[in-house]
Write a protein that binds this DNA or RNA. Structure first.
Lengths: 221, 221
DNA sequence: TTGTCGGCCGATCGCCGACAA
DNA sequence: TTGTCGGCGATCGGCCGACAA
């Protein structure tokens, strides 16, 4: 996966260290992301100084959720004299990728198969619509991190007028198993190519399924 | 998987050797069943004398297709004096399981979600319908080799009258990924419990997918 | 006896503007 | 500006008898 695409899809707080960086391994944070990987009673002390030995960026084959595999070698740090990896301006291309992220509402994920496009995204990421047409409409072709292509109908309609993705959207939602709370990321490359990525919302620990007889009916609103 | 259920679901030509039996390993036959397991140029000679060291019967977790894992030890046979394993009458219970197998037609697999029940199967495997009712109808509950239960609506209707499985059938077809040519096996235990199994039709070698632009439109009839 | 077909009805999907937050 | 809703038309799934092989 391209580094700039990966960064756009990763949660905003994510920062990638560089190989050789001196970091602290923090088991509690690891367990929060991957509860199934670690035993429940976490060891003490709770942080371990480590050196990053390798990084590989990837995306899940089925869901396209991006992840980073960061290899660590435990060992004492050489001290604060080491260069600060975050200050390293190694990635000028990152500036070139403009993107917009939106957390899916209930309506985006469940209802009628449409997606409300925020104005900023339509104006700054998507190609301009022909507003002479009635209604203004175009088809958008986007590539996901695994190079699979998705087509969406982008229309500007309704009273008051708003941008929507209609045909093609629900297919994407179902294929990626998206739910309200997940986030989609629309990206535009300098050459105009559109990309689509996603950030999976944190999933709560899986609870064992109840028998049908024990299940509560869904709350009525 | 129970031996009798396995035998009912296996293709009629299948016979299971017993441990210790002296058999011939025939690479060409192995390649026909599992084309991906063996290298293309098959070795000569084409048969190898072996002794069966272990047998385990199983069913695929997703599709329920039954298979047998037969461990072989290459080595010369001790000669024709060894007992003929097929003559060994070790399985009186097998007589107790009555079953009926039907290869799926196009209509069974594709159309309107129904299944034409051959008369023999309705008469000898399924519970008797109440022909006083109009129409005669009942729900059948069946267990597959992985102990999952499936319910089917069994109705006797149409002109001329015939037995059909309707509601529940297409769910089964989709879940098991059945296509025309596959075979379903209905079984009745002595205690009356109904079982359902399947035999997957031989699949032809997978050809690489063509690009959309190269694909032929489906033939019109 | 049973495989295939067209009819048809109900459920679901998904596009739409209305309206309010 | 945009989230949610009800309406509603199109599509699809699937039950039906007709008919012929």
């Amino acid at each position: 996966v391209d580094r700039d695409v990966w960064l756009a899809c990763a949660v905003p707080l994510s920062r990638l260290p560089v190989v050789g960086a001196e970091v602290y391994y923090f088991p509690h944070g690891h367990a929060e992301q991957c509860p199934e990987h670690l035993p429940a009673p976490l060891p003490t002390p709770h942080i371990f100084p480590c050196v990053v030995t390798a990084i590989s960026l990837g995306a899940d084959d089925k869901t396209n959720e991006v992840f980073a595999q960061i290899s660590l070698k435990p060992g004492p740090h050489r001290g604060p004299a080491a260069p600060a990896p975050d200050a390293d301006p190694t990635n000028p291309q990152q500036q070139q990728l403009s993107y917009f992220a939106k957390q899916l509402t209930q309506s985006d994920a469940n209802n009628g198969g449409g997606f409300s496009v925020p104005r900023y995204c339509a104006d700054h990421i998507f190609p301009k619509l022909d507003f002479e047409a009635d209604p203004p409409v175009q088809n958008l072709l986007m590539r996901d991190p695994k190079a699979k292509h998705w087509q969406f109908r982008h229309i500007y309609r309704g009273t008051p007028r708003r941008h929507l993705l209609t045909t093609g959207w629900s297919k994407f939602v179902n294929a990626k198993l998206l739910v309200a709370g997940d986030t989609v990321v629309f990206m535009r490359r300098p050459d105009g190519e559109l990309l689509i990525g996603l950030r999976r919302a944190p999933r709560y620990p899986v609870v064992p399924k109840l028998d049908a007889a024990q299940q509560q009916p869904p709350p009525r609103n």
